[in-house]
């Protein structure tokens, strides 16, 4: 994938998603124009998107490498709890600004440290011990959740300084800070995957790990990097989460875990690994957000919109399959290979 390959401009997955978003916006706009196009609705969407968005990016990198990270939510909650514990212990009502800033810096680094530890454990087990990523991250998910629950007994830690809350509820020129954070993360992951040697390594490992190793790439280092960066994104997501709720607890956002996989695959990430663009993932997230907000506005149970997400996912797979068939018939083996590889869980 060169900087200017012609396929990038007419990316069929992206145009399909843009089309679907337009259809969804027109449909919901038609059903409830006054409420759907109200500024408040779009503001609400802008505040809801980043949390799932950053977590989906954390899922996306392992997916592109041919793996999966089931521990993302658990990692984010552990980071949130670590940061919350440091913040609430060190900051009193009468703390001077300097002490508050110091405590925040300490909390952020402690949270990042916790995230990196989990990422290192995942990366080590996947790359050196060669255990399947689903199993490794299932184990770390249970372990990390267990640690969070053992430490807090399932309780809530809350009450943070305004500087932290700003991340969840503040705006800059009308744009939510959390959305800006998500934009930064998306741009960062996009650059990382598309423009760096590490990103090339990740995509190669996702396509064929053994061939990548034999062609001289240090796959161990790449895989450890994959899980470290995934964990780092969990840490950012944790920041947004604790700021939005003004509290941290084991078990927040647990229902997002499998949704992030749907969002990434809907966004064109090849579930067998090797391919995936951040642009598609961002579009998929926008689509899911429009669907859930739209259904919410016309008074449909949020559960039904989740069911629609599942159905959208299957529909996307169907469309991808049809496209592969067509591409195959129109003699473009290049595209046909994307989704047609056999087997594997």
């Amino acid at each position: 994938m060169q900087a200017r390959d012609p396929g990038a401009r007419r990316d069929p997955a992206a145009s399909l998603l843009v089309g679907l978003i337009v259809v969804a916006v027109i449909a919901f706009g038609g059903l409830s124009p006054t409420r759907f196009f109200a500024p408040g609705t779009w503001r609400a969407m802008a505040f809801q998107l980043p949390e799932l968005g950053i977590l989906t990016l954390a899922m996306m990198i392992p997916l592109v490498s041919g793996g999966l990270n089931l521990a993302i939510i658990a990692t984010a909650n552990l980071c949130g709890l670590v940061m919350a514990a440091v913040l609430t212990r060190l900051i009193g009502v009468a703390s001077p600004p300097g002490a508050v800033a110091g405590a925040i810096a300490l909390a952020l680094s402690a949270g990042l440290g916790a995230a990196l530890l989990v990422g290192l454990l995942n990366g080590f087990m996947v790359s050196v011990l060669r255990v399947h990523p689903i199993l490794v991250t299932l184990g770390t998910m249970i372990l990390v959740n267990g640690i969070s629950i053992a430490a807090t007994h399932g309780g809530v830690i809350g009450g943070f300084p305004p500087a932290i809350l700003l991340l969840g509820n503040g705006t800059v020129l009308g744009v939510p800070v959390s959305l800006l954070l998500f934009g930064l993360c998306a741009a960062g992951v996009g650059l990382l995957l598309a423009r760096t040697p590490f990103g090339v390594g990740v995509r190669m490992v996702g396509s064929n790990e053994r061939a990548t190793r034999f062609s001289g790439v240090n796959t161990t280092r790449v895989l450890i990097g994959v899980y470290l960066s995934s964990s780092t994104l969990c840490w950012v997501a944790a920041l947004v989460m604790i700021a939005r709720f003004n509290s941290a607890r084991a078990g927040y956002a647990e229902s997002y875990l499998l949704i992030t996989i749907l969002a990434a695959v809907l966004g064109g990430v090849d579930p067998f690994g090797g391919f995936g663009r951040v642009r598609g993932v961002v579009l998929a997230l926008c689509l899911l957000q429009v669907i859930s907000t739209g259904f919410n506005l016309i008074g449909v149970n949020p559960r039904l919109s989740e069911a629609i997400w599942g159905a959208t996912m299957v529909a996307a797979l169907v469309i991808a399959r049809i496209r592969v068939r067509w591409a195959g018939r129109l003699s473009s083996p290049d595209q046909a290979s994307t989704l047609a590889s056999p087997g594997g869980p």
């Binding site: 999966l68 689903i134 499998l258 949704i259 996989i261 749907l262 695959v265 579930p271 067998f272 559960r303 039904l304 989740e306 069911a307 997400w309 599942g310 159905a311 996912m313 299957v314 797979l317 169907v318 991808a320 399959r321 989704l339 047609a340 056999p342 594997g344 869980p345």
Partner: peptide, 20 residues
């Protein structure tokens, strides 16, 4: 039919079944 990985398909059906 979709030649999709079982993990993705069954997550999608799980989401669909439970939420419906």
């Amino acid at each position: 039919a979709l030649k999709a990985p079982p993990v993705i398909v069954t997550i999608a059906t799980m989401t669909f079944y439970f939420s419906m």
